[in-house]
Amino acid sequence: MDIYEKNRCFLCQGNIKREISWVGFFLNQGEFYLCEKCEKKLEKIRGEKCSLCSRPMEKLPAKFKKEAICYDCYLWEKEEKWRGVLEKNISLYVYNEFMAELIARFKYRGDYVLAKIFAADIKGVLQRNEFDLIVPIPLSNERLFERGFNQAEALAREAGMHPVSILSRIHSEKQAKKSRQERIHLPEVFSVTNPIQVKEKTVLLIDDIYTTGSTLRHAAYVLKKAGAKRVQSLTIARG
């Protein structure tokens, strides 16, 4: 019996045919959203990685490493303003060509259901760690209207979390077009709308991708200033 026969892959529309195993049955792995072929193209971050930002370090030349952390993180941590602001970033997948396409389809084309693909992984992270607040990185109002949904919030919701929107964006320009220097030296991008809620809490920030880490650090900075105890972040891809 092939109970998954009707399921079609979210990306290639091909049929999903999976072996049904007892392990899968008892662990309730639930539905599959991708066919095996597409899933293979997703590359999990494994092996040696930066203990701070999850950047894969196996193939990284030695000059970009500083002991257990990558050179980017070393630069961030060197500056007093940013030291320890973002305690840790967990990223799930390598930002390869396939992931780039997937994220583009998800957030720019607005294919909301794709958030489900990562639900199980995100749940896994949450089972291993405890947080008081789950906070998605917000979009500006214009961008939110244009896209119809906030991709970070979608990821959290589809993973069964209850995200709280306590950040708002002051600046509205797109990040993707800026250089690292421009991003780091931005004036404040976020503000905390309800500081009382943050006091003494451990916060998990959610976003789709970690590129330079500037967005997440700016968000973590205002949260810490508002009194958050610890701030970590979770992104599906590490650019």
Binding site: Y112, V113, L144, F145, R147, G148, F149, N150, R157
Partner: peptide, 8 residues
């Protein structure tokens, strides 16, 4: 077809 929480 799929539903989503629409911001519009």
């Amino acid at each position: 077809f799929s539903p989503f929480p629409c911001a519009r």
